[in-house]
């Protein structure tokens, strides 16, 4: 093992799996930052549970990506020895936790998508991805439930909570478009039935998100100008800091096992 970046042969299936693994790891990592600092003990437990679900998904996906790649990489090399330009996660998921409203809005927007996505992926022609999807769907279904209940309470709670929830939606909205985009590398997998076309998930996602927002008396922004780049390794400035913290130990001790 070395502290330098590994290189990954990003064939379409490796890249595709890696993107989903990075999504799960980065969001799981963000949720783990709450541990010990949540607004109430009950919520500390819940955030850690969701973080653990996502870490579990990440590990399965990394293991599969490494196996498909077949170059001797493993989950830890993929997680700890790639830099920000090599990470493929959605920009939404690396956004800082901010206040509880921001964390819950991020969770709500993403898990509503993830649940639709994993449900569709249960029919993937790739048996491993289909099996991961079946497990992940149950987890994301609960994340949707949990986040939605909070969105309603924050939106329809006090003036302050409404203001915070609304500003979180306004600030994060521009990161949602990326969830429904697919590039040429993914299009090939969609054609052969390994991947699902995320564009088809946008309508049901918008419907689900709108219903909860309406109940929460929150408005969805009208501006549909969307940020892109996470899937190609062009990230916000936040990811580099997250990774330098996360990777600091393995990067400091060449050749060590933990």
């Amino acid at each position: 093992m070395t502290v330098a970046n590994i290189s990954v042969s990003e064939t379409p299936l490796v890249l595709y799996t890696l993107r989903r693994a990075d999504d799960a790891l980065i969001l799981g990592h963000r949720l783990s930052e709450w541990c010990g600092h949540a607004p109430m003990l009950e919520e500390d437990m819940a955030l850690a549970n969701m973080g653990l679900d996502l870490l579990g998904q990440a590990r399965e996906l990394y293991a599969y990506a490494a196996r498909v790649e077949g170059k001797g990489n493993d989950e830890d090399k993929l997680a700890y020895l790639r830099d920000a330009r090599q990470y493929r996660n959605l920009l939404l998921l690396e956004q800082p936790n901010g206040d509880f409203a921001r964390t819950m809005v991020r969770q709500f927007l993403y898990s509503t998508f993830a649940d639709l996505y994993w449900r569709a992926m249960m029919r993937s022609g790739d048996a491993t991805l289909a099996a991961i999807a079946a497990r992940s769907e149950k987890e994301s279904a609960y994340h949707v439930r949990h986040a939605s209940e909070w969105i309603v309470r924050l939106g329809d709670g006090t003036e302050e909570s409404h203001r915070r929830a609304q500003s979180a939606i306004d600030e994060l909205w521009a990161f949602t478009g990326e969830m429904f985009a697919a590039d040429d590398s993914e299009r090939g997998l969609i054609e052969v039935g390994v991947a699902v076309d995320p564009a088809g998930l946008r309508a049901p996602w918008l419907k689900a998100v709108s219903e909860v927002a309406r109940e929460a008396t929150l408005d969805l922004p009208g501006n549909d100008w969307m940020q892109q780049g996470g899937r190609d390794g062009r990230h916000s400035e936040h990811l580099g800091h997250l990774l330098s913290e996360m990777q600091s130990v393995p990067r400091s001790f060449p050749g060590a096992a933990w």
Partner: peptide
Amino acid sequence: GAWVREAAQAY
């Protein structure tokens, strides 16, 4: 966390 607890209570 105070505003979160207040929001849940108000709701």
